[in-house]
Amino acid sequence: MSVTRIDLDDEVLAEAMRLMGAPTKKETAKGALRDHVARIKRLEAAEKPAARGERGEFAAVAAAYAAAKRARRAAFE
């Protein structure tokens, strides 16, 4: 862990402490960084399947699912 000195907006820091329920500035900064990194990772993870879908990688799976669904329905008719 490294020690870093930074200037923070006191009003924003106080609001972040209140919203996060963090008792100290240190815990607020650490929590905010962890939350931000986790959020970006979630966004990146969500973009991967979306990009695959745009490339049509799921088209074969969707077609197979639709065919199986039609076959199940036909079996009950």
Rank of each mutant, 00 (worst) to 15 (best):
I40F: 06
R72N: 03
D7I: 05
A60P: 02
L19N: 10
R5Q: 07
A22K: 08
L43A: 12
A51Y: 07
L33S: 10
L8N: 02
E15V: 08
D9P: 05
L13D: 01
G56E: 02
T28M: 01
S2Q: 09
H36K: 07
P49F: 05
L8P: 01
A46D: 14
S2I: 08
A29P: 00
I6R: 03
M20A: 14
A63T: 10
A74M: 04
A38R: 11
L8E: 03
A14I: 02
I6Y: 01
E47H: 07
A14W: 00
K41W: 05
F58V: 05
P49A: 03
T4E: 09
R18V: 07
A66T: 15
D7C: 03
G53R: 11
A71S: 02
E77I: 01
A22D: 07
F58A: 06
K48C: 04
V12G: 04
R73L: 15
A38V: 10
S2G: 05
L13A: 11
D7R: 04
A60K: 08
T24D: 04
H36P: 00
Y65W: 11
D9E: 14
A74K: 01
M20T: 10
A50E: 14
A74I: 04
M20Y: 04
A45F: 04
E27T: 15
R42M: 11
K48M: 11
R73K: 12
A63V: 12
E77A: 08
R73P: 00
A67N: 07
K30T: 12
T24K: 02
A60T: 11
M20D: 09
V37P: 01
R70T: 06
E57S: 02
V12N: 05
R72Y: 02
K69S: 08
A22N: 03
K30E: 15
G21R: 01
G56N: 04
L13H: 00
R73E: 15
T24Q: 02
M1Q: 09
